[in-house]
């Protein structure tokens, strides 16, 4: 019974939460730029509008890929709420991310091709980092299962401080925030038209957007694991992290993929390595 409720929460509440987070994000960004900003419900209006638009396609693979993307994104969140295996969640999430790229590649548009190539670089950049974060969690708790993380008595942040920073790198990339938003970018900024989302339009863009909300919830959920011992801890940690993300987004310029791959791997891999050695030694 508890499982069923969790599944329902995962399927229904996650996108609502994700949409709300996107709305708050836009509001805060506007505030940082001394603007007024759209209502917090704005993302829901956007998606509803997109659903009611005409279907305009380059080929039908896009549709196929958008559906697989949202299925996988939903499934990964559900697995998270069912406290499943972390690596498995990452792999299921990857199904969605990769099909989205394949969909972008399947169109003949040069803009979305370039975007798709760049999205692959982004995946290449964050995937190993997330795996290493999970390995850190495994070394700290003795298991890859989320249920074990919850039964851990002290906050993981204490033993995995550097890995949390590494996770934040991945979070920034996944949220499509500057300086890592060159495959496509969040709301008002543009990148090579709209990067790999150029050819997704109307209802299919709406599906992609909802899938993105699921992913945001998933990755913030992963952040929450680092202070899973108390609700206040979770809220403070995730809230602060997100605030930092918005701040970084607003103060940073967009960089090139070479810079991203180089700097994130150097920083991320060395920080994870150091943190993992601490765990191994201590």
């Amino acid at each position: 019974m508890r499982g069923v409720i969790l599944v329902i929460i995962g399927v229904v509440a996650a996108p609502l939460l994700g949409g709300l987070i996107a709305g708050v994000d836009r509001r805060l960004t506007a505030w940082f730029q001394s603007r007024y900003g759209p209502p917090v419900w704005q993302p829901f209006f956007d998606v509803a509008k997109l659903f009611a638009k005409e279907r305009l396609l380059v080929n039908t693979w896009q549709v196929f890929c958008a559906y697989i993307y949202i299925t996988a994104a939903m499934l990964s969140v559900v697995l998270f709420f069912l406290q499943s295996d972390l690596l498995l969640i990452l792999f299921v999430q990857a199904v969605g991310a990769i099909f989205l790229v394949i969909g972008a590649f399947s169109t003949t548009s040069p803009f979305s091709q370039v975007g798709a190539n760049r999205e692959l670089i982004q995946i290449l950049t964050y995937e190993p980092l997330i795996v290493l974060v999970f390995v850190g969690i495994y070394l700290a708790t003795g298991s890859f299962k989320i249920s074990e993380v919850y039964s851990h008595t002290s906050p993981l942040l204490k033993s995995l401080p550097l890995l949390y920073i590494v996770l934040c790198y991945a979070l920034t990339i996944k949220l499509r925030k500057s300086p890592f938003d060159f495959s496509t970018s969040h709301h008002a900024h543009q990148e090579l038209v709209k990067g790999f989302l150029t050819e997704y339009s109307g209802p299919y863009l709406a599906l992609v957007e909802i899938g993105h909300w699921y992913e945001v919830v998933l990755i913030l959920g992963l952040c929450s694991l680092f202070w899973a011992t108390s609700w206040t801890g979770i809220i403070v940690l995730v809230g602060l992290t997100y605030l930092c993300e918005i701040l970084i987004d607003n103060v940073m310029a967009r960089m090139t993929w070479r810079w991203m791959l180089g700097s994130v791997w150097t920083m991320g891999l060395s920080m994870s390595f150091v943190n993992l050695i601490w765990l191994h030694g201590g």
Partner: peptide, 28 residues
Amino acid sequence: VIVLLAVGSALMVVYWSRWAGVLLSAPY
């Protein structure tokens, strides 16, 4: 080993997925 495996599998994803995408890249 785990660092090598993590980076290696991410690289693998790159060359496979772009190949799959390119195969499908045709107008309707």
